[in-house]
Structure formats: structure tokens, C-alpha cells
């Protein structure tokens, strides 16, 4: 089966520098995404995890056509784009719904919710009466009563705003929904409601989700596969059960232990380096407890360490025999034999 979404060697750069610098024609750029590749099947949920500055939000925005790509290609349902091709993006935008990180900021404060929900329909030239009818259906679908249609964003709660953004993302019946931190800022009990709603929507329509989150506990429950990002690269990707049972990258292990039970040992020193000063060699070597001279000079290639399990590391953790599926394995001794 061919994948619904295929991203190949995607590169995104942001311009930096001052107005005077730009007037003088200086081009300074920061590489935010550096050669990202991923695939996503119809009806599948891929979790994109990483800390702030890892580029996970940028990747979501690039796939959603909100951030121009500098190189690489995106293929959705058989149509590809390698640059700014309008035909592709128009089709793309109809197939992709986007949920923003801050639902309140993603709703126009001066627009009634019905108008916000059906804005994608209006952009695609669907008339007013049809839009009004669909707004009611969409509200019902996300579990909100019809009188929400006439309200303004400041009259609803954070959890309800999330549901409204879900409704908007679904309004064009997309095949892919990109959800950027869909549970950030929600209370635990409400978080469960929203995740169950997304799951029910997926079960009913086999829509695919790209689920961007920093919450590994949530990712473990709701994703089929997980891709871990660090400094604009995917450093590890695998089926969710595999990545939690047998993380191959030292960074993944550190993340898991930060979330997991107390007593897990690997300590990351320092913080994510600035994108403007990307480390040589392996980008993670400045914080990696296992870094060698090779890591400091030579960028690692991707290794396949299991079915669908890829790791970008010179010394990936060999797949453990049997690890309990729920508890991340304890960190192995740093003294490992080099291959």
C-alpha cells in the first residue's frame, strides 16, 4: 500500500537579520529542518515528539503549507510538490486539516464560532446556507450543542475551543489532520475527552493524524508510530510499542526517563543548542552521555535496528531481547563495545 503522506529530505530555512541587513542584500538563514523524511498511511497516527526547538511544529506547518520549503518534496495522496506549486498546495489544503497549539489564538476574536468553523468551506466557495447547515453538523460531531454557533471565542472554555478547532480541521473532510499539541493546557479529565474524540473520529472516517506533542505519556496511548525530533532532524522513528520498549537513540532514552519512573539514570547535560550554532558531527553530541570523537566529527547515518525502527546514531542501542512494554528499560552502562 502506498503511503498517504510522504515527506522526503525536507529542508526549511528561516531568514534572520535586521531590516538594514536585508536592504543591503545580506541573506542570513537558519536551518530549522534539515533533511526530514517520513511517511504516514491512511488511518494511521504518527506521533512527532521532541522538546521545544526540535522543529516539530515547523515540520507540521511545512506539511500544512504554512512554511515554504527550501528543498525536498512532500507527496500527498499521490500528488507531489517540490517547491511552490500552486496546484499542489490548493489540493493539499483541501486534504489537510490543521489544529493549532493555542486554540484561542487560532480563532478570530471577532468572528462567531460558526464562521470560524466553516471558514475553510467559505474559502472553497461554498455558499452561506450550506455553511450554516454544515456548522451545526460539525458542532454536533465534536460534541458541542448548536447554540455554540453564535458565540464568540471569549465566551467558551479552553476545552471547548479545542473542540471548535477540531470541527474546523474536519470541515473539508480531510484525509490528514495535523494536530499541534492538541492537549496542551487541558486539565487531565478534559484531555481524555479530547483524545477519545479524536480517536472516535479516526475510527469513523479513517483520517490520518500527525500528532505533535511533547507529552510522551499521551503519545504512548494514541499513536501507532512515533518519530523523535532533535534540532530539526528525526533522530529515531519506530512503532510506538517498540520505541517505548527498546529506544535506540540516547536522546530518546533520556526523554523516556525524564517522563518515566524515578530512579532512571541517564542525565542530559546542558540544553538544546541554538539552531544558529548547530554542532558539527552528530547534533546531539554536546549533550550525549555516550559521545565519542567520531560523534563530534562525523554526522551519523540512519540505521535500521528493527522492523520500521530507524535510528540516526553511530552507536544505536542494540535491540534488547525482552523489555517490559510499559516501563522504559534502565539505561545501559555507558561502557559499550563499539561496533
Amino acid at each position: 500500500m502506498t503511503a498517504l503522506l510522504e515527506v522526503n529530505d525536507l529542508v526549511v530555512r528561516y531568514p534572520t537579520g535586521s531590516l538594514f541587513g536585508r536592504l543591503r542584500g545580506e541573506v542570513r538563514e537558519v536551518t530549522v529542518l534539515d533533511g526530514v523524511s517520513l511517511t504516514l498511511d491512511q488511518g494511521e497516527t504518527l506521533g512527532l515528539v521532541g522538546e521545544s526547538g526540535s522543529g516539530k511544529t515547523t515540520l507540521g506547518r511545512a506539511i500544512g503549507g504554512m512554511t515554504p520549503m527550501a528543498a525536498g518534496s512532500i507527496t500527498l495522496a499521490g500528488i507531489s510538490a517540490t517547491g511552490r506549486q500552486d496546484v499542489f498546495w490548493r489540493e493539499m489544503r483541501r486534504q489537510v486539516g490543521f489544529m493549532f497549539q493555542d486554540p484561542m489564538a487560532a480563532l478570530d476574536p471577532r468572528m462567531r464560532l460558526a464562521a470560524s468553523i466553516t471558514e475553510p468551506l467559505a474559502v472553497n466557495g461554498i455558499g452561506r446556507t450550506e455553511r450554516r447547515r454544515r456548522a451545526g453538523d460539525l458542532l454536533a460531531e465534536v460534541g458541542l450543542s448548536p447554540d455554540f454557533a453564535e458565540r464568540f471565542p471569549h465566551q467558551i472554555s479552553g476545552g471547548q475551543a479545542r473542540r471548535v478547532t477540531v470541527a474546523r480541521a474536519l470541515s473539508l473532510r480531510p484525509r490528514l489532520v495535523i494536530a499541534d499539541e492538541p492537549t496542551a493546557g487541558l486539565d487531565l479529565s478534559v484531555q481524555g475527552e479530547l483524545l477519545n474524540l479524536l480517536n472516535a473520529i479516526q475510527a469513523a472516517s479513517s483520517v490520518s493524524f500527525l500528532f505533535i506533542t511533547h507529552n510522551l505519556a499521551v503519545a504512548r496511548h494514541v499513536t501507532d508510530r512515533v518519530a523523535v525530533m532533535y534540532l530539526g532532524r528525526i533522530v529515531e522513528s519506530a512503532r510506538t510499542a517498540d520505541i517505548f520498549a527498546r529506544p535506540g537513540h540516547p536522546y530518546t532514552r533520556a526523554l523516556l526517563s525524564a517522563h518515566g519512573a524515578p530512579g532512571a539514570t541517564p542525565r542530559l547535560t546542558g540544553e538544546i543548542p541554538s539552531l544558529k550554532r548547530r554542532p558539527q558531527g552528530c547534533e546531539f553530541h554536546t549533550r550525549c552521555p555516550l559521545a565519542t570523537d567520531r560523534c563530534r566529527s562525523e554526522p551519523p547515518a540512519e540505521h535500521l535496528i528493527g522492523p520500521q525502527h530507524q535510528v540516526r546514531c553511530h552507536f544505536p542501542l542494540a535491540p534488547a531481547g525482552k523489555a517490559s512494554p510499559q516501563v522504559p528499560p534502565a539505561h545501559p552502562e555507558p561502557a559499550r563495545s563499539q561496533p
Binding site: 490543521f98 497549539q101 487560532a106 468572528m111 471558514e119
Partner: peptide, 26 residues
């Protein structure tokens, strides 16, 4: 720079449309 404008862009809305529906009212 607000997300609701980015959202509109992600739907493929044109600049005049964004200016009329989101910028002018605000």
C-alpha cells in the same frame, strides 16, 4: 503573526480575503 491568520492561510485563503475577513474587523 496570529494563528487565526495562519489558519486562514493554511486553508488557502487569498491575501485580499484575509485582509477583509480578519484584518479589517480587527
Amino acid at each position: 503573526s496570529m494563528d487565526f491568520v495562519a489558519a486562514s492561510q493554511s486553508m488557502g485563503a487569498s491575501l485580499p480575503r484575509i485582509a477583509l475577513t480578519h484584518l479589517v474587523p480587527n
